[in-house]
Amino acid sequence: MQQVFLDIACFFKGERTDYVIQALKGCDLPEYGINILEEKALINIDHGFIWMHDLLEEMGKDIVYQESPSDPGERSRLWFHGDVFHVLTENIGTSKITGIKVKLPKDSDAICLSGTTFSKMRNLRILIHRAGSFSGGLVYLPNNLRVVDWLDCPFWSLPSDFNPTKLAVLSMPGCRITRILEGIKVCQSIFIHYYAN
C-alpha cells in the first residue's frame, strides 16, 4: 500500500477517483489500495475526488525526499518545481525515477529538453504536466509509461519510436498533435481524455 500512498501524496491528491484508479491499475498497483487507505483514514473520497490531509501529504513527500536528499535524480518521484527543473534541464534523471509532475511557476524559464532527457528514465511510468514551458525537441519517451497527462502539450508529434504498450491513461487536452494514436499500440483499457486545438 505504500506505493499507492506515495503516488497519491506526490501526484494524485485532488484528482478524480476514476482517473486515479485507472492510473494505479495501469502501474500494476492494486485498485483496492484506495479502499484500504480510506479505511485507515489516510485519504478520503469526496464527491468523486481523492483528498489527503496536508500533513499526510507532506509525510509522503518526505519519505520520497529521504530516498536521496542531495540528488533529486535518484528519487523515485519528482514533483517540486525546483527539482523537476534541475533534473530535466541538467539531464540527470536516472532509472530510479518512476514519476514526474511538472508544475512550474509562471515566471520560470523554459525547460530545455535534449534528445536524451528521458532516455535514462527507463522506469518512468507517470508523466504529468500541469504548468511550465519547454524548449528543444521531444526525441524520446520511455515505452514503460503508463500515464501521460500533458495539458497543452506544445509538440506537434510524439517520438516515432514511442510504443507504450502498457499505457493506461492518456490525457492531453489542448495539445497540437492531430493523430496521437496512429501507429501506437496501447492496451485496450486505456482511459483517454484527448482533444487537439
Rank of each mutant, 00 (worst) to 15 (best):
P173L: 11
Y140P: 10
G48T: 06
P72H: 08
I50P: 05
E39L: 02
S114H: 03
A41H: 11
G183F: 13
S95Y: 06
L141I: 06
D161M: 10
V64Y: 15
E182Q: 15
F85D: 06
P69E: 09
I177T: 06
E58H: 08
E182G: 10
L158Q: 09
Q66M: 09
R125L: 04
L42C: 07
H129V: 15
R122W: 04
P105R: 05
S108P: 00
N163G: 11
D83M: 07
D107E: 13
K101R: 12
I111F: 02
Y32H: 09
T165S: 15
L104P: 03
I128M: 12
A131L: 05
I190D: 13
C187R: 15
D28C: 11
V139F: 09
V102P: 03
A9R: 00
E57M: 11
I92W: 04
A23N: 04
M59I: 11
Q66C: 05
L145D: 10
R125Y: 03
D46P: 04
D54Q: 08
A196Q: 14
K185N: 15
I126D: 07
V84G: 02
R16Q: 15
G48W: 08
G73Y: 07
F11L: 05
L6Y: 06
R75E: 05
V169K: 12
G26D: 05
Y195L: 14
G73Q: 09
E31L: 01
T116P: 05
I111R: 01
D54G: 02
W79I: 00
C27D: 09
F118C: 02
D71Q: 12
W51F: 15
P69H: 11
F85L: 06
P69Y: 15
W156I: 07
V84M: 03
L78R: 04
G136R: 05
N143Q: 06
F5D: 07
I184E: 12
R176L: 07
K120C: 08
D109I: 01
W51V: 03
V4K: 00
N91Q: 09
Y195D: 14
W156V: 08
Y65I: 02
L158C: 10
F155L: 05
H53D: 14
K61I: 00
T178A: 07
D62M: 10
E74Q: 14
K185I: 13
G48F: 07
T116K: 14
I128R: 08
D161R: 12
A9W: 00
G99F: 05
S76Q: 00
Y32L: 03
Q2R: 04
G137P: 08
F162I: 02
H53V: 03
C27Q: 08
L104Y: 06
Q2Y: 02
P142S: 05
Q22K: 14
T116W: 01
P154L: 02
G60E: 01
H53G: 05
P154W: 07
I126M: 07
G33H: 00
R122F: 03
S68L: 04
W51L: 12
V147I: 14
H129L: 06
Y65E: 11
V84W: 06
T89Q: 14
H86N: 08
E58C: 10
P142C: 03
F191S: 13
I43W: 02
A110H: 04
